[in-house]
């Protein structure tokens, strides 16, 4: 994010926040197919890179999509992840677990041509079985484009804060 970016304006900012709220609602309700169809563009790159702990003096570049990543998916690959959840044989999700998202600090910038760069913070609470609770915090860097009355995401970079994941898995969408 550079100082040169142009804020998207309050109407767009608020439309994008509304968009994120519906997205969260869909994911919390398990409407993954609807989420993918309505809110994710077919040219999506959905990416959660792995950042190492490096000394400040280390001059190596940050990870690129050619490097190790927990998610590094195109649309078809995301669809595969979504469809797995509908097979009825994902035993860990039967009975289903709970997930709740707190999205904050949404900042939308106008990238021209009906496209927007949007930064946000995400806190994810997961509960499952009787007592299992896990928490994740992430930074999210999106590129959205206007589609009809709403938006679709076509770049999503998820920056997870913890080096060592304190959870059985990261099988959830953000």
């Amino acid at each position: 994010m550079s100082g040169k970016q142009t804020l998207a304006g309050l109407d767009v900012q608020s439309a994008i926040e509304m968009h994120y709220r519906s997205e969260v609602r869909m994911l919390q309700n398990g409407q993954y197919r609807e989420w993918l169809a309505d809110m994710v563009a077919e040219d999506i790159h959905y990416w959660m890179p792995i950042y190492e702990q490096r000394l400040i003096r280390d001059r190596r570049p940050d990870p690129t999509p050619d490097d190790a990543a927990i998610y590094n998916d195109d649309y078809g690959e995301l669809k595969q992840r979504v469809e797995r959840l509908y097979t009825g044989t994902v035993w860990m999700e039967d009975p289903p677990s709970k997930i709740r998202y707190m999205v904050g600090n949404v900042e939308a910038f106008d990238a021209g041509d009906g496209e927007f760069e949007v930064y946000s913070n995400v806190v994810v609470y997961r509960n499952r079985r009787q007592l299992e609770v896990t928490v994740h915090t992430l930074g999210r860097e999106d590129k959205l484009r206007r589609v009809g009355d709403g938006f679709q995401v076509f770049r999503r970079k998820l920056l997870i804060d913890a080096r060592v994941t304190q959870d059985k898995n990261l099988y959830f969408f953000c």
């Binding site: 959660m48 927990i70 590094n72 992840r81 860990m92 898995n169 099988y171």
Partner: peptide, 17 residues
């Protein structure tokens, strides 16, 4: 390999429990 057996692996996530 990561999509199937990483932390968000489509197979590995089945095994945790």
């Amino acid at each position: 390999a990561t999509r199937s057996f990483g932390t968000a692996g489509t197979l590995e996530s089945d095994d945790g429990e």
